[in-house]
Design a protein around this nucleic acid. Structure first.
Length: 295
DNA sequence: GTGGCATGGGAAT
DNA sequence: TTCCCCTGCCACC
């Protein structure tokens, strides 16, 4: 669910299905009715993700800015779209899925571009429960980028910008990693797991971290989060620590991925057997192994 | 059926 | 810091 990898995957999935196609847009419950009316018939020109923010580009109409928050979901379907179930803030559909042609040719803003999803393929996507779904201008989009830190999933990201702030901070590294102004896209799972993987005590302050430790955190995040986009879930356990390799029972819960400490409070650490610790930090639950994370 | 909890974040205090 | 948004899943009536 929604840490940065989810959003980057959504940007890819939307682009594959919808780029270059004139789409039907609707807001069945009316919470985004004005925006959907403007978008109906427009062509998706591109998608982008920065941290947990998703941007769907519609040429001169601007961008749909989506933030899933804690509950939001983007669900895809193929074929003829059924009547929406529950609260659907925004539905995007190809004409084939919507059961009709795009409203007017005049709203089709790009002349080139058949979608990679294949001309005529029927796809739809339902957005429910987002914290944010709004139509914004290019400058407004830029303002969102400006208040976000470097994102391990964006190729042009500069980890130096994060280090400049971290290395001066008296805040704990656990809190710094969750601060989207400092690093964009890391959520509660990745923060707990990356600190475990590097053996770093989550209560160390930013200024106590060495540059080498920060570089290790960043490169581990880049690798873990790319893996997350690829698999569409968070797996952080190294090959030698998988259930198969260690002969332990696989994890069963709603996330699916294998992790070291996230939501494993009081359970034995996979590496040393010490009960995993938990504490509330900045209104979120932190998990760590007090034995393995002493650096 | 009910209540608690969750990978987030912004506004209010 | 606390509240609120408002979805889905689970444990526990």
């Amino acid at each position: 669910m929604p840490e940065g990898h989810t959003i980057h995957r959504l940007a890819q999935d939307c682009a594959e299905r919808f780029t270059g196609r004139a789409l039907r847009a609707s807001s069945p419950q009316g919470k985004f009715a004005d925006g959907a009316a403007l978008l109906d018939g427009a062509t998706l020109t591109g998608t982008e993700a920065h941290g947990k923010h998703l941007f769907l580009g519609f040429g001169p109409l601007g961008w749909v800015h989506v933030h899933l928050g804690l509950y939001g979901k983007f669900g895809f379907g193929e074929g003829r779209a059924p009547a929406p179930v529950g609260q659907v803030r925004l539905r995007l559909a190809t004409p084939e899925a919507a059961g009709g042609r795009a409203r007017t040719a005049a709203r089709t803003r790009t002349a080139d571009g058949a979608g990679t999803g294949g001309e005529g393929a029927a796809h739809y996507a339902d957005l429910r429960g987002p914290t944010r779904c709004e139509l914004i201008t290019e400058p407004e989009k830029q303002a969102v980028h400006d208040r976000l830190g470097p994102d391990p999933l964006r190729p042009a990201s500069d980890p130096e910008a994060a280090w400049a702030r971290i290395s001066r901070s008296r805040t704990t590294v656990a809190a710094l990693l969750m601060d989207q102004k400092i690093v964009a896209g890391v959520g509660n799972v990745y923060r707990a797991e990356v600190l475990f993987r590097l053996g770093i005590d989550p209560y160390r302050t930013g200024r106590e971290l060495t540059r080498a430790e920060w570089e290790a955190i960043w490169s581990d995040l880049v690798a873990l989060m790319h893996e997350g986009v690829r698999n569409n879930r968070i797996d952080t356990v190294r090959e030698e620590h998988t259930p198969e390799a260690m002969g332990r029972a696989p994890r069963v819960d709603d996330h699916g991925g294998e992790v070291y400490v996230y939501r494993r409070a009081h359970m034995p650490c996979h590496l040393c057997g010490t009960p995993v610790s938990t504490a509330e930090l900045a209104a979120r639950n932190l998990f760590w192994c007090p034995c393995c994370q002493r650096r």
